Structures are given as C-alpha cells and as structure tokens.
Computed example of a mutant assay.
Amino acid sequence: MIDRFEYSETGNRMRLIRENDEYYFSHSLDRIFYNYAAVKLRKEVMDEYLPVMKAVLISLKSQELLDGLKLGNLTEYVGDYIQAKVLD
C-alpha cells in the first residue's frame, strides 16, 4: 500500500505553494500528527491483509477455471470492492 508520507511530490507541492496562500495549508499540528499517524497505521494493517485478499482472488479465479465454476462477475466485484473501500 502506498504511504504518501514516504515519497515526495515536489512538482505538485511546489505548484500548490505557488497557487495558494499560507491559509490553504493546515497549521494545526494536532491535525497533521493525527493524519500522519492514521496513514502509517493504515499502511501497516493493509500491508498485512492485502496479500491475503490477493490470494483469495487468485483462489477464486483458479477454482473457476479448474472446476468449471460459474462465478460470474464475483472476482471482478471483489476486486472493485477492495479498490473502492480499501485503496481509495
């Protein structure tokens, strides 16, 4: 999972600084700290569960192919659900 605090968006950041005044950015250290902590915790938890979710999707697709099961759009639905709810 991507942790936005681990990489730099220098070009985007510089554009935002040029286009906005200082009131555009958060000055609340509490808000910045809690945002940082939430992102770090989310990454830690999701890095544990994302491989499991991927394995479940692979297992579903394998069962569909090997056993001739007709799961319809279940694997696509699960993938889309994970994308929308977890990786937003």
Rank of each mutant, 00 (worst) to 15 (best):
I82L: 08
L29S: 12
E22P: 04
E44R: 15
M46P: 01
D21R: 06
S62L: 10
G68C: 01
Y77F: 10
V39P: 02
V39D: 04
G68R: 01
L50Q: 07
G68I: 02
V78Y: 05
A55L: 05
M14K: 14
Q83G: 08
E64P: 00
S8P: 05
E64C: 04
R31W: 03
E19G: 01
K43M: 10
R15F: 14
F5A: 09
V52T: 11
Y24L: 01
S8D: 14
R18K: 13
I58Y: 04
D21H: 05
E22R: 13
M14F: 11
I17V: 14
D30W: 09
E76V: 10
G79M: 02
L60Q: 03
V45P: 00
I2C: 03
T75R: 08
E9K: 07
L69K: 00
F33L: 13
N12R: 15
D88W: 00
R42L: 06
K43T: 12
Y23D: 15
V86Q: 03
I82F: 03
N35A: 09
Y49W: 12
S28N: 15
N35V: 00
Y34R: 14
D30P: 02
Y49M: 10
A37H: 12
F33P: 01
Y24H: 12
R31F: 04
S8Y: 07
R15K: 13
F33A: 10
N20W: 03
L69T: 03
H27A: 13
I58D: 15
E19S: 07
M1E: 05
L74R: 05
L87G: 02
L16K: 11
A38T: 13
M53W: 09
I2D: 05
L65N: 11
Y81W: 12
N73L: 06
V45C: 07
S62G: 03
R31Y: 06
R13H: 09
F33N: 07
T75A: 15
R42G: 12
V86P: 02
V56W: 10
A55N: 08
D47L: 00
E19C: 00
L71I: 05
E9D: 14
K70S: 12
Y23K: 14
K40E: 13
S28V: 03
K54L: 12
Q83C: 04
D30N: 15
M53A: 10
V86C: 08
M53K: 00
V78Q: 02
Y77S: 12
Q83L: 06
D3K: 02
K54D: 14
M14C: 09
N73R: 07
M46W: 08
